[in-house]
């Protein structure tokens, strides 16, 4: 019986995969014309751009999880704080966009470090579930607190950008400057993170601390401070993601809801894998975009979870995941 269900699931998964990637082949075999193909590619491109935001949020969640085994459910709220900081620096204080973006990312990083130092560190040694509940609690508090800040409140805002809310064309595909910026920022950020983790003393200390805390201590690594810095890094990335998400969802106390796309992305990639989070985020973005365009209204909202369900049934460890054996 189980076998039969597995076969059924595989057929469904295979069919959806084929459906999603088929248009280029259909075009090659002359089934659809080039304008239909362009429509498809248009959706893929915007899906990739949205997916990059999911990827960055998922990346932040994975960074914290890998290092501290804490799942931060407040990542969305940290993103929201980042967007409000960017709004403050750029719109209210009238700073240059790029300077404001940098300050917002830095400010959000400080918020993340504060969350770790003040809220999470006293919880060390408590059950994992208790720590997760604390992050959820912080999320609620952050949303309420932000709505009480003068000048922020519960309204929606748009961040002023140095480029028009316009598109440029690449072949027949129209790409908005907002989307292009998201993709470019994600690529640069991923490259920087790669170099950081691969070559810097701090990056290697972070990897070491997440692999074996005890051994890291005896290599001279101040593990607790490193964890605080990881929270800072993760929050800084979320802050940038918030800034980039702003043109689409606007700056609002509830914009943190984007985590409900980021969590599937992280699980899809194999929770605990950084490349997995990026790939997972982009896949979720594309699937959402395609299903929003071709399928009925409403399916877009659950598409991420349908994909997640299929992956969890067929490959529970995720795309890049490793099977964990708990050491006893």
């Amino acid at each position: 019986m189980d076998k039969a269900f597995e076969v059924l699931w595989r057929i469904i998964a295979g069919a959806s995969l084929v459906a999603f990637v088929s248009p280029p082949f259909l075009f090659l075999f002359g089934v659809i014309d080039s304008s239909a193909l362009m429509l498809y590619l248009q959706q893929v491109v915007s899906g990739v751009a949205n997916g990059c935001v999911y990827a960055l949020v998922a990346l932040g969640i994975v960074l914290i999880y890998k290092a501290t085994e804490t799942i931060n459910f407040a990542q969305g709220e940290i993103l929201m704080i980042g967007a409000f900081l960017a709004f403050t620096f750029i719109n209210i204080l009238g700073m240059n966009f790029w300077l404001g973006a940098l300050l917002a990312a830095g400010g959000t990083a400080l918020v993340g470090m504060g969350v770790d130092r003040i809220i999470i560190r006293p919880m060390v040694g408590q059950p994992a579930f208790a720590i997760v509940m604390v992050t959820i609690g912080f999320g609620f508090v952050a949303r309420s607190a932000v709505s009480m800040v003068p000048g922020w409140g519960t309204d929606s805002y748009a961040i002023e950008r140095p480029f028009a809310a316009d598109v440029f064309t690449w072949g027949e595909i129209a790409i908005s400057y907002d989307h292009a910026m998201i993709v470019a920022t994600t690529v640069v950020l991923c490259a920087a993170l790669f170099l950081f983790f691969r070559y810097t003393k701090l990056g290697i200390a972070m990897q070491a601390s997440s692999q074996n805390q005890l051994a890291a201590y005896y290599m001279g690594i101040p593990v607790r401070q490193i964890f605080t810095l990881i929270w800072g890094l993760s929050a800084g990335v979320a802050g940038l993601a918030g800034l980039m998400l702003a043109p689409f969802t606007f700056v609002h106390t509830n914009m943190g809801m984007v985590v409900f796309r980021a969590f599937p992305a992280a699980v899809l990639g194999g929770f605990g894998s950084i490349p997995g989070a990026i790939v997972g985020g982009i896949i979720i973005g594309i699937v959402e975009s395609l299903s929003g365009f071709y399928l009925d209204e409403g399916i877009k909202n659950v598409a991420a979870y349908v994909v997640l369900l299929l992956v969890l049934v067929l490959k529970p460890e995720g795309i890049f995941g490793v099977v964990h054996r708990k050491k006893v």
């Binding site: 920087a192 170099l195 950081f196 070559y199 810097t200 003393k201 701090l202 290697i204 200390a205 990897q207 070491a208 692999q211 074996n212 005890l214 051994a215 005896y218 290599m219 001279g220 690594i221």
Partner: peptide, 30 residues
């Protein structure tokens, strides 16, 4: 207590961590 996902060489190099100088950007710039 070793760093299981790393190589023998990398584990040993981590033993040099406390002796490392130089800063963040110079490491990235090699």
């Amino acid at each position: 207590e070793l760093f299981e996902m790393a190589t023998v060489l990398d584990n040993m190099l981590l033993g040099r961590h406390a002796h490392l100088g130089a800063g963040l950007l110079s490491h990235m710039g090699f």
